[in-house]
């Protein structure tokens, strides 16, 4: 417990934390997981099994004080690693963290079944595996929206495209724009107005 606390303190004071797992190990695990995800590679899964299963057994035995339950945790966790490998995203966290959350969730549900006789699998609601992804994916929908707009802008006459792009995407003021294009301010304003009403028309058609 103390080790964890001092590590956390280190994090907040900004110093580098040394972990025992080496970088090569980390890369290997990522490669194995990827091979399982993309080509259902049995050899890669066997490697993952030999890396994780003994550790999971050890942790579960010390937590559950029961050999057969600990074995159940190993089997259930490793089955989930196989089944869900394609849902792991290495840009969103370490593979060890991902396997740890699977193991923690499996153990939690087994314990709850034992203690409260409930098979409600609440772990998925308390620690959703794909929730963070959903939150981070939100800008993506904006991205699609933006692509739509860009396609519509492409349909505008060239002089209108110019003002829209400069005004909205480069965030120039109308005055700067007039100067930049060497046009009277009034012309810039009317082109913007015209371009906007055309944009609305095009976007409206799509709905």
């Amino acid at each position: 417990m103390q080790v964890v606390q001092s590590n956390v303190t280190n994090k907040f004071t900004g110093s580098v934390i040394n972990y025992m797992a080496s970088d090569t190990q980390h890369t290997d695990i990522c490669l194995w997981l990827d091979a399982v995800a993309t080509s259902r590679d049995k050899a890669a899964f066997t490697q993952l099994f030999h890396f994780f299963a003994p550790k999971i057994l050890h942790i579960s035995q010390s937590k559950l004080f029961d050999k057969s339950l600990a074995n159940e945790v190993v089997q259930e966790t490793m089955t989930n690693v196989w089944k869900k490998a394609h849902l792991f995203n290495s840009t969103k966290g370490a593979p060890t963290t991902w396997v740890f959350t699977i193991m923690r969730n499996v153990t939690f549900d087994i314990l709850r079944k034992l203690q409260s006789n409930k098979e409600d699998n609440l772990s998925e609601d308390i620690w959703p595996m794909i929730e963070d992804q959903a939150i981070e994916d939100e800008p993506f929908s904006d991205h699609i929206e933006q692509k739509n707009i860009l396609a519509v802008i492409d349909k505008l006459p060239k002089n209108q495209q110019e003002v829209i792009q400069a005004y909205y995407f480069m965030e120039m003021s109308q005055e700067q724009l007039a100067q930049h294009l060497d046009l009277p301010l009034g012309t810039v304003k009317s082109r913007l107005r015209l371009a906007l009403s055309k944009l609305k028309e095009h976007l409206g058609e799509k709905e």
Binding site: V4, M20, K42, F45, P54, L57, Q75, T96
Partner: peptide
């Protein structure tokens, strides 16, 4: 904290003697 606990959990090295209660190859 999850990251830390995961690192701690899977950096154990003294687990070579793990005795599974099942046939490993069959399970794989």
């Amino acid at each position: 904290l999850t990251k830390h606990e995961a690192k701690l959990s899977f950096s154990q090295t003294n687990v070579d003697d793990a005795e599974f209660g099942f046939d490993v190859d069959a399970l794989i």
